[in-house]
Simulated scan of single mutants.
Amino acid sequence: MNAPPELDLLYVDEHLVVVDKPAGIAVHRSNLVGADDDYVIDRLRRQIEGPLHLAHRLDRATSGVLLVARSVEAAADLGRQLMDRKVDKSYLAVVRGWPAESGTIDHPLTGASLKGERKPARTNWRRLATVELPIEMGRYPQQRYALLDVEPETGRYQQIRRHFAHASHHIVGDTTHGRGDHNRLFRMHYGVHRLLLHAWRLRFAHPADGRAMGLSAPVDAMWIKALAGLGWTLPAVT
């Protein structure tokens, strides 16, 4: 069996590694995912020697910037930044409908079991583009979609996906919380077979010297296909 391809690394030093995580691969072994032979952390261990500690997580279906510490001390510092909400995370998402130009979803969520106590969860968004497609589906002769820049304030399980489903602006390609009819539309008309949620930018303080770090991950080929089909271009990363 051929070895899986190496990961694209966005930044590397003796304290941390920033990975461009592909869609469709789990970050690590977990009871929440099936038994796979391929995980991000295993690929990374074949590329980077020494200890590696995941500073945060991305869903299997989500692509983009993933932060990994190379020491216990760096992991602890990044963990504190995350707990104190000092890490700015920005995602790109394609959703059904046209949300307002900006807003916040403030809706408590349960944990990964989807049961038990609900904890505070807030997600902010800014609308980047809209489109109305002349495709009839159900009782509507046209279908509306929007491209959003999404910034979660908290980090609950599948927070962005669950929040936009709660707001009836389901993320395209979400097979768990999304809408099957809209997912099929994107497969049929645009050849898009993945969740259109991408961890676009990450801003944090370097764990060793505190300098401001800003990393971004480019969108993959399927994202490019979707953007081209919808007539959208991404703004420059700032």
Results as ranks from 00 to 15, higher is better:
residue 174 D to I: 13
residue 150 V to H: 10
residue 144 R to W: 00
residue 207 P to K: 01
residue 42 D to F: 04
residue 68 V to T: 05
residue 55 A to Q: 02
residue 89 K to M: 08
residue 177 H to K: 01
residue 110 T to Y: 11
residue 9 L to G: 08
residue 13 D to L: 08
residue 125 W to Q: 02
residue 121 A to I: 10
residue 98 W to M: 02
residue 125 W to P: 01
residue 191 G to T: 07
residue 62 T to I: 08
residue 180 G to T: 14
residue 99 P to W: 11
residue 202 L to R: 04
residue 192 V to N: 04
residue 27 V to R: 09
residue 133 L to H: 06
residue 55 A to M: 01
residue 75 A to T: 07
residue 56 H to K: 04
residue 170 H to Y: 11
residue 119 K to L: 15
residue 128 L to R: 08
residue 139 R to G: 03
residue 125 W to I: 03
residue 168 S to C: 08
residue 192 V to D: 03
residue 103 G to N: 10
residue 63 S to Q: 03
residue 60 R to N: 02
residue 106 D to M: 09
residue 146 A to H: 03
residue 175 T to D: 14
residue 145 Y to M: 11
residue 118 R to V: 02
residue 154 T to I: 07
residue 236 A to I: 05
residue 2 N to Q: 13
residue 195 L to S: 08
residue 85 R to I: 00
residue 66 L to H: 10
residue 164 F to V: 06
residue 173 G to A: 05
residue 96 R to N: 03
residue 220 D to R: 07
residue 155 G to V: 02
residue 126 R to P: 00
residue 4 P to K: 01
residue 28 H to N: 01
residue 80 R to G: 01
residue 132 E to D: 13
residue 169 H to V: 07
residue 150 V to N: 10
residue 111 G to D: 15
residue 56 H to R: 03
residue 143 Q to Y: 12
residue 191 G to W: 04
residue 195 L to P: 10
residue 217 A to D: 07
residue 157 Y to L: 08
residue 68 V to E: 07
residue 97 G to D: 02
residue 43 R to H: 03
residue 238 T to F: 00
residue 74 A to F: 08
residue 157 Y to T: 15
residue 206 H to W: 12
residue 222 M to N: 08
residue 38 D to R: 12
residue 94 V to P: 02
residue 148 L to E: 12
residue 11 Y to S: 09
residue 105 I to R: 10
residue 42 D to K: 11
residue 48 I to N: 06
residue 200 W to A: 07
residue 178 G to Y: 00
residue 8 D to S: 14
residue 164 F to Q: 09
residue 89 K to S: 08
residue 112 A to H: 15
residue 218 P to N: 03
residue 50 G to C: 05
residue 103 G to D: 09
residue 223 W to I: 02
residue 14 E to I: 00
residue 234 L to Q: 06
residue 50 G to Q: 06
residue 122 R to M: 12
residue 173 G to Q: 12
residue 169 H to P: 05
residue 42 D to Y: 08
residue 101 E to S: 14
residue 122 R to K: 15
residue 194 R to H: 10
residue 7 L to H: 09
residue 175 T to G: 02
residue 228 A to Y: 00
residue 14 E to F: 00
residue 110 T to M: 14
residue 209 D to K: 05
residue 38 D to N: 14
residue 212 A to G: 11
residue 65 V to R: 11
residue 6 E to I: 05
residue 168 S to P: 00
residue 220 D to L: 06
residue 188 M to R: 15
residue 93 A to P: 01
residue 132 E to V: 14
residue 88 D to S: 13
residue 237 V to L: 09
residue 100 A to R: 15
residue 110 T to K: 12
residue 201 R to L: 03
residue 164 F to E: 04
residue 164 F to T: 09
residue 47 Q to C: 11
residue 167 A to H: 01
residue 231 G to C: 07
residue 53 H to R: 09
residue 92 L to W: 12
residue 4 P to G: 06
residue 28 H to V: 00
residue 134 P to V: 11
residue 232 W to G: 06
residue 17 V to T: 15
residue 211 R to A: 08
residue 238 T to A: 14
residue 91 Y to K: 04
residue 232 W to C: 06
residue 13 D to H: 12
residue 79 G to R: 12
residue 72 V to S: 13
residue 155 G to Y: 11
residue 116 G to D: 09
residue 161 R to N: 10
residue 132 E to I: 05
